[in-house]
Design a protein around this nucleic acid. Structure first.
Length: 491
RNA sequence: CGGGGUGUAGCGUAGCCCGGUUAUCGCGCCUCGUUUGGGACGAGGAGGUCGCAAGUUCGAAUCUUGCCACCCCGACCA
């Protein structure tokens, strides 16, 4: 199906990433520019991500709902900053019918079927949701509204990359409405914590929590909280955002509620989202030159059993054992594949499951059956060792946990080693041009300085970390500043 | 939108500069047999609007013009 191997990370990281996505059968390009087909294996990983996040959202009191894909154009113009941020990348529906072309060569848009008001394919759902919340909210008793939706959105990006930035992508967007500012801010922070916890505990990707500078803030938000991850090539990737929207959308859509005293107030809002971009973060954090490396908690298949045999009798004996092991592991909630496909040789299977990132491989051959052992191979560090069949399920369970932990600690070490403090632009450039990574520096808080630094270094402020008490001098102007921020070149 | 590149079988490609009979090779696919502890081997077989359109020519995958699509780098980007 696919030829051997992929280009090395050290040769061409970008190419490595693309080849990996294709060869691990996560996704492929569609015939529409910037759109991707998520293949079953890639989608299985996304489903794991989705299912776990969904549990976490529900535990924090949220419910799922679904709002329409198409939004009246007029909605988008109601919040000024919001339209400014999204207008340039909206796909627009102008007609509702096709007809056969006169020359019979295909179909054409029927000019008679022009829509009175054009429809926008949602780039995000704030506008349609706040238009709806207006109808749902009259009293403080109607609050809070804690709703999430799993959906697809379309943003007509100039340049796209599989999972990292596609014209259409899958995501969840939470949209909540609150009676007080404090409650909305608490919600925003809570969801940021949910994201950070998920990304660290399940994806094994360490993140830095912070808020965005004004320049990088979500269009229409008063404050954008984010988690930032660091990829193996030293570039940053925004992994999730949680926005405190203040009363901007409530005012734009005239959403008010009567408080206990009967006084009318505008509602306070939040929105928060993560997307299939998380797949990109997952891939670029752990994978290596042999292919994908998946953390056990998100791997659709956690253990693969590969039999080695010379004849049907041997296969029968091994199969009996493999099915028994598979059953025992299933009882421990471990997902197992026994690959007894006779058309592929073991070596082919080894390489294939390495490409797919299966965390653990159990190899069983006649020799093993005789010695009552199996061979265990870890995907993350590529070690192999022989272990007794006695007590194997428990050992496998422990090893999966260990892999999960070690992936996280390895990624954390990488992040720490690639976080450097600087106090001059020269130093910043020097770091960014060599090892890359996060650069901590003080900043005077001015958007113009931020832009200037970007022009000089191609680095943007990824975030202003939440815990932050030191003082220093602005890396650009030398002014005294209490804002220690994280710069990086980013995806 | 600027710069670069690509388009030939399911996938990856040679051929193109310098036009010439039946379009190259590898992987994959089908059949049979032998194999199976790190991407097996042999024999046989199937599979092609050479991105699209027009032009030049006795003759076009190859030359000319136009168009389309995608990829990469940049600008842009929650």
């Amino acid at each position: 199906m696919s030829s051997k191997g992929i280009v090395k990370r050290s040769e061409d990281f970008s190419k490595w990433y693309n080849e990996l996505v294709l060869k691990a059968e996560l996704a492929e390009h569609s015939d529409v520019r910037g759109c991707m087909i998520i293949k079953p294996y890639g989608y299985a990983i996304w489903e794991k991500i989705k299912d776990q996040l969904d549990v976490m959202f529900k535990k924090t009191g949220h419910q799922n709902a679904y709002f329409p894909l198409l939004i009246p154009k007029s909605y988008l113009s109601k919040e000024a900053a919001h339209v400014e941020g999204f207008a340039k990348e909206c796909a627009v529906v102008t007609h509702y019918r096709l007809k056969n072309s006169e020359d019979g060569s295909g179909v054409v848009v029927d000019p008679e079927a022009k829509l009175e008001e054009e429809l926008i394919i949602r780039p995000t759902s704030e506008t349609i949701i706040w238009n709806t919340y207006k109808k749902w909210i009259q009293s403080y008793r109607d609050l809070p509204i804690l709703v999430n939706q799993w959906a697809n959105v379309v943003r007509w990006e100039m340049r796209t990359r599989l999972f990292l930035r596609t014209s259409e992508f899958l995501w969840q967007e939470g949209h909540t409405a609150h009676a007080t500012k404090l409650e909305a801010i608490e919600e925003t922070e809570q969801m940021l914590d949910v994201y950070a916890k998920f990304v660290e505990d399940f994806m094994a990707v360490p993140v830095i929590k912070g808020v965005k500078s004004e320049n990088e803030r979500f269009a229409g938000a008063e404050e954008t909280y984010c988690i930032e991850a660091l990829m193996q090539d030293g570039k940053a990737l925004q992994a999730g955002t949680s926005h405190f929207l203040g009363q901007n959308f409530a005012k734009a859509f005239d959403v008010t509620f009567a408080d206990k005293e009967g006084k009318k107030n505008h509602v306070w809002a939040t929105s928060w989202g993560v997307s299939t971009r998380l797949m990109g973060a997952l891939i670029m954090t752990h994978s290596d030159d042999k292919g994908l490396v998946l953390p056990p908690k998100l791997s659709p298949i956690q253990i693969v059993i590969v039999p080695i045999y010379k004849n049907q009798d041997q296969l029968n004996i091994i199969s009996d054992y493999a099915f028994k092991l598979k059953k025992e592991l299933s009882e421990l909630n471990i997902s197992v594949k026994f690959d007894n496909d006779d058309n592929k040789k073991p070596g082919w299977k080894f390489a294939e499951y390495e490409m797919k990132g299966i965390p653990l491989r159990v190899t069983v051959g006649p020799r093993d059956m005789e010695n009552k052992t199996v061979e265990l191979a870890r995907r993350d560090d590529l070690t192999k060792f022989s272990v007794p069949q006695e007590g194997l399920p428990k050992l496998l369970l422990e090893t999966l946990d260990k892999i999960q932990e070690e992936l996280f600690s390895k990624a954390s070490s990488f992040l720490n080693e690639h976080t450097n403090q600087v106090d001059s632009i020269d130093q910043m450039n020097q770091i960014l041009n060599t090892k890359g990574g996060f650069v901590e520096a003080f900043w005077n808080g001015d958007s113009k300085s931020e832009q200037k630094i970007k022009d000089l270094t191609k680095a943007t402020i990824r975030c202003i970390p939440l815990e932050n008490s030191e003082k220093g001098n602005c890396v650009l102007t030398g002014e005294s500043s209490s804002k220690k921020v994280i710069f990086a070149r980013a995806y």
